[in-house]
Design a binder for these strands. Structure first.
Length: 376
RNA sequence: GGGGGGGUUCCAGAGCGGUCAAAUGGGGCAGACUGUAAAUCUGUUGGCGCAGCCUUCGGAGGUUCGAAUCCUUCCCCCCCCA
């Protein structure tokens, strides 16, 4: 994997670049739709490519390991072939499940024992076998196994956890560097900065992660409930320590405003379930604000879903119709909303890239941010 | 024509003398959602000048300190037999 920076914004840390992988190039800043279980929920790959213009999607090690399992993934020839997606894939390691499924796992130095949310069976995840599983999944970018700490978090715990994440990283690197991909294309490993909301820990972690010299670096453990200001402050701090010439990936972020703010801080890659999950729950993101499509007020609004939207659904369907579909619990509601939201998120990062290129990003960002959050 | 059952707050449906503005489900309305246990979850759902009061359980009248609950009568539904 290779990363090239084309231009930088003068008034912020924003930059426009390209990541080169064996499955194609990724223009940055980029938003990566989340496809946990081998599917970005409620959307076909065809729409994902042609309408949304997604250039890389996520998969999840924990979920894919449990179902369909490594045996099937290996027989399929990896996740790309299994799901019919020929562009890049990034897999999360299961580190987020250490956080989100905390009540059904036990963590030790050796690794984590998860009790499956599907059938209750127990499964051990170690840095080594998480690398092994991600080799079988065949993601272009794989993530180190880490602990995503909760918020709030005691200093002592955050420190202990960070050090363990670092030790796990060493084991991940050791395992990854001594194995090869199964499918004739290269994979790369991203380490993850932790340290909760503590500046000294974040600096220490960022330095540690930077020193491993991998192709890209991730920032984890944020957007877990802390105020946005805290997230921005720590992101800025960590970005200042991480190398400039490698892509920076802020995991799990975020709202459209979060993304623009963090692009300004030097982040290149984002992922978040928000555009897809919230789409299924009736929330529509637009450049003018947020719409709750279940609300009564859209009942007879026959204007297009998003007059500024670039996907076909934006012009083809009215708000009244989409509201009707949500009210009637029709699955097309989820499909339309998902295409729209992902299309909007990708438009947002692409527009950011264009503004960076024109050196007008900072001004544009400050104009956009206040417009993105109001409820319409 | 004979016999039986029933009408409850938007709907379905509990309640069968006080603890009932009335269970529960649905629907409605609103909110939440940030490396997805999520097409999920939460709140709310008679009115008001709201620690109280007013209107409400098919209509009218009655019994009672007190009625959605008991009695009389009227109206309307449903089922079975002929």
């Amino acid at each position: 994997m290779r990363f090239e920076i084309h231009c930088k914004d003068q008034k912020s840390k924003a930059r426009k670049g390209t990541i080169y992988t064996d499955h194609g190039i990724i223009q940055t800043p980029v938003f990566m739709p989340v496809g946990t279980a081998g599917t970005v929920k409620a959307i076909h790959n065809k729409d994902l490519e042609e309408q949304v213009k997604a250039r890389i999607i996520l998969g999840n090690t924990y979920h894919l390991y449990l179902r369909p399992g490594t045996n099937i993934l290996k027989q399929a020839g990896g996740l790309h072939k299994f799901m019919g997606w020929n562009k890049p894939i990034l897999t999360d390691s299961g580190g987020y499940q250490v956080y989100s499924l905390a009540h059904r796992r036990k963590m030790k130095e050796e690794g984590v024992i998860f009790q499956s949310h599907i059938d209750g069976s127990r499964h051990k995840f170690t840095p080594e076998n998480v690398m092994h599983v991600q080799r079988i999944i065949g993601a272009d970018i794989i993530m180190a196994f880490d602990e995503c700490t909760p918020y709030p978090c005691e200093y002592d715990y955050a420190k202990k956890s960070m050090h363990m994440t670092h030790r796990w990283l060493n084991r991940c690197i050791e395992e990854f560097d001594h194995t090869e991909g199964l499918y004739n294309y290269s994979q790369t490993l991203f380490p993850i900065v932790q340290g909760s909301t503590f500046k000294d820990l974040r600096i220490q972690s960022a330095e540690y992660i930077a020193a491993t010299g991998r192709d890209g670096n991730a920032i984890g453990g944020l957007s877990v409930g802390e105020p946005a200001e805290v997230m921005y402050e720590l992101t800025e701090l960590v970005c200042s320590v991480l190398p400039d010439d490698k892509p920076r990936y802020l995991m799990g972020v975020g709202t459209p405003a979060n993304i623009l703010e963090c692009i300004a801080l030097g982040v290149d890659m984002f992922d978040c379930v928000m555009p897809t999950r919230n789409a299924r729950n009736g929330m529509i993101f637009t450049s003018e604000g947020i719409l709750n499509m279940k609300n009564q007020k859209w009942v007879d609004d026959f204007s297009p879903i998003d007059p500024n939207g670039l996907t076909f659904v934006d012009q083809m369907y009215s708000r009244a119709y989409l509201r009707h579909l949500f009210t009637a619990n029709e699955m097309l509601a989820s499909i339309i909303a998902t295409i729209h939201n992902l299309g909007f998120y990708l438009w947002l990062v692409d527009e950011a890239a264009r503004q960076i290129e024109m050196n007008t990003f900072y001004h544009w960002k400050n104009l956009m941010v206040p417009k993105l959050s109001p409820r319409l």
